[in-house]
């Protein structure tokens, strides 16, 4: 019997949080048919790629779409004056 996609997504999300290579809590995982979509923001490109690799290991039969963004650290903006 095919496993419900919700359980697959939950297992991937848990692996991303608990796997010592990733430890990333804020990634949204959606499974649609044989596709898996990863969304969220992380601090570096290597980390972003590791997340997709771990997700692929947990669900080897799904095609992974890595839509995770790397947070761009832009220049500080305007001050806020709290009167």
């Amino acid at each position: 019997m095919m496993e419900a996609p919700q359980y697959v997504a939950a297992r991937v999300q848990r692996a991303l949080a608990e796997d010592s290579r990733t430890h990333e809590l804020g990634i949204r995982v959606d499974v649609r048919g044989d596709q898996m979509f990863l969304r969220g923001q992380v601090s570096g490109e290597e980390h972003r790629q590791r997340l997709a690799a771990v997700a692929q290991e947990v669900a080897p039969n799904l095609k992974v779409h890595n839509e995770i963004k790397v947070v761009e650290v832009t220049r500080p903006g305007e001050d806020e004056h709290l009167d």
Binding site: V73, R75, D79
Partner: peptide, 21 residues
């Protein structure tokens, strides 16, 4: 009391600057 969430992905900039009198 004013509260600010300064998580980097929320700020979208290197840091926020909050000025108090």
């Amino acid at each position: 009391i004013r509260v600010r969430n300064v998580a980097l992905p929320v700020l979208g900039r290197a840091y926020g600057v909050y000025c108090l009198n």
